[in-house]
Simulated assay, not measured.
Amino acid sequence: MRQGRWRPLLKIAALAVVAACAACSRAPQQPASSDASPAAQPAASSRDVAASPPLVAAARAQIGVTRLYDPAYVRLSYPGGDVAADRGVCTDVVIRALRTQGLDLQQAVHEDMRANFAAYPSNWRASAADRNIDHRRVPNLRRWFERQAWSLPVSDRAADYRPGDLVTWDLGRGVPHIGIVSDRKSYRGRPLILHNIARGTQEDDLLFDYTITGHYRPKLDRGTANVAR
């Protein structure tokens, strides 16, 4: 997808993410309903899912299921809590995919934040960990990934990004975004990204369209114990 087509979506995404941050400071609410169904890609076939790396397959399986971008604050069950499967934000793509691989980011981030609250960003002026929203915020995920030694150098070479890697961006004016590197490539030879920017889970060509702020490679084979530093 050419970058020009992303400009309207960038505006929508920026407003939605800002709304998500604002919603977290208000009283919890249920997700807003929507009568309009954004255009969604067809659900991935079982053949496509089986042929891809597990994390990529888990993210791709969300296409056609998660159809809405909804940043509403929601009270979640714990552990393993999730918003309705048909909606979510960019972080929910990652949370759901990693959960299929045995890592519950809700519990992992919450436990680490309770024990090491000062180590995490204070963007939201929170005074304590919140298991309903902390793991759904990109800055918190970035800090948790760093504390697990998942960080890799940010590069402008497509070959440095492997299927299943996690990438974060600044969409402009400090608006964060996160996605999973796919095993498919665009006509430009760039890895596609599995993400939710405004239309539900999609697989798009945007790796180098925005400023990359983080590159991470999950080490799921080494366990999911929090790192105390």
Rank of each mutant, 00 (worst) to 15 (best):
L103S: 07
Q41K: 06
A84K: 05
V181R: 02
R184V: 03
C24K: 08
V74G: 00
A14K: 15
A50N: 06
R184S: 07
A72H: 08
P54T: 05
G4F: 12
A72W: 07
A32S: 04
S151W: 03
A16R: 15
A57G: 12
Q202K: 14
A19P: 03
P153E: 02
A32N: 00
L207Y: 02
A108T: 10
V65F: 11
R162V: 13
S52H: 01
R47T: 13
V49N: 01
A115K: 12
T100Q: 14
L171D: 06
T213A: 13
G200I: 10
W150T: 10
A40I: 10
V227L: 04
W144T: 02
V56Y: 03
R143P: 00
P71A: 01
T213E: 13
T168I: 12
A225T: 13
D35T: 10
Q148T: 11
R136Q: 00
T224R: 06
A225R: 08
L103C: 14
A119S: 14
K185S: 10
F145V: 07
I193C: 01
D183S: 12
R60C: 00
P176H: 09
R125W: 09
A14N: 15
P176W: 03
Y210H: 15
L98W: 13
Y161F: 13
D130N: 15
I197Y: 09
A36V: 15
H110Y: 15
V94L: 12
I133T: 11
A57H: 00
H177N: 05
